[in-house]
């Protein structure tokens, strides 16, 4: 499990639209909205690195979004199991 906190920058006018567009994306949860500054803190949950990056790109390309940046990032211990296969390949 990969969790990341993302700062999404929109405008005060487009904030409601932005919230809706974000919630429509898989694995995205809007945690805090700041109507005055047009900002949102969202949490993204994905299983793979690729999905994580792809989702961030999707957020960045939403019509209501001016920019999106990762702030914090968390790996669950499950990650170790998912990378063990890679190490096995190298050993062979």
């Amino acid at each position: 499990m990969r969790l990341s906190a993302i700062l999404v920058v929109s405008t005060p006018q487009k904030l409601p639209q932005c919230s809706q567009e974000l919630e429509a994306l898989p694995g995205i949860e809007v945690y805090y909205s700041y109507p005055e500054s047009g900002r949102i803190i969202a949490i993204q949950e994905t299983q793979s690195v690729r999905a994580q990056e792809e989702n961030l790109r999707q957020i960045q390309s939403l019509p209501s979004v001016l920019g999106a940046q990762l702030i914090c990032y968390y790996h669950d211990a499950d990650l170790d199991a998912s990378t063990a296969g890679i190490e096995r390949n190298l050993d062979s």
């Binding site: 906190a5 805090y32 900002r39 803190i41 914090c72």
Partner: peptide, 28 residues
């Protein structure tokens, strides 16, 4: 999982100088 999500969100908000609702734990 919910606890981690909440503390991630709170830590993120406080990192960029946005107010965090009372009771949220800004400790990551």
């Amino acid at each position: 999982r919910e606890f981690i999500k909440a503390s991630l969100a709170a830590a993120a908000a406080s990192t960029v100088g946005l107010p965090v609702p009372a009771g949220a734990l800004p400790v990551f």
